[in-house]
Design a protein around this nucleic acid. Structure first.
Lengths: 126, 126
DNA sequence: TTGTGTGCAAAGATTTTGCAGAAAT
DNA sequence: ATTTCTGCAAAATCTTTGCACACAA
């Protein structure tokens, strides 16, 4: 029941996710890592993505296209999803953490954070 | 290529969704509707949920538990998701549509709307 | 009558898991 | 030596779809 052990595959997954802003799916990660580790399995990719998410090294995004996306940018930020092409784009915007307080006003539970998805048409599709 | 035809099954799905605040999954809907229509199939439930969502009669929620949830409350509102029990709860809070403008400031695409998920621990689990 | 909807079953897509061997500590 | 990790394949989930018949307009 000790901790994690190093693995090259896990490092490769994290390195790839940190190198891109494209919010890849498990399949995307698999195809990319396979360039360096041709024998890696999709199961290993899933296991490592889940481990990294548990460790807080990456975020899991559920944006409504039926597939999970992953993001190594763990600092608070928001996402835009293009209704036309499905692209997920990081938004650079003023922090609006105060909405947690606003939400708390008429709520009896404990609000710890939030996730915002903006929808519309991206620059490419316009 | 005409329009939709009436179906009792579809009406039952919509009626049920409008009667609850529990944000059911397709499986939940299926089990409920089966009380009245014992021979309804899960495929029919999915088809009707998809039709109703296309018509804008219901919303589809992807909250990160790997299953789609559905909500007949189509007026703009936000959701809270309990990290402990997974409950999805409607939040009654001041509208913050202005965040669309804030997001637009440094973004080149067109922002048409947003979806916010608050996370934390619900009253029941506290 | 003509098209749409349904039940059923099979298929598709995504993610998880059991196992034996490989790698890390 | 011991525990964790991996590849592989099978299984588990969730959702969609083809088809023949039923129902609505």
């Amino acid at each position: 029941m000790a901790g994690l052990k190093y693995s090259r595959q896990r490092e490769a997954v994290l390195t790839y996710l940190r190198s891109t802003k494209s919010h890849p799916t498990a399949e995307n990660v698999y195809l990319k890592i396979r360039e360096e580790f041709p024998r890696i399995s999709l199961g290993t990719v899933y296991r490592n993505l889940n481990l990294l998410a548990e460790q807080g090294e990456i975020l899991r995004l559920s944006c409504g296209d039926g597939v999970e996306h992953f993001d190594a940018m763990v600092e608070p930020h928001n996402h835009f999803i293009c209704r036309n092409c499905g692209a997920i784009i990081d938004l650079e915007m003023a922090s609006i953490d105060s909405i947690d307080q606003v939400a708390d006003e008429n709520f009896s539970g404990k609000i710890e954070g939030h996730e915002i998805y903006f929808y519309g048409i991206c620059n490419n599709c316009l």
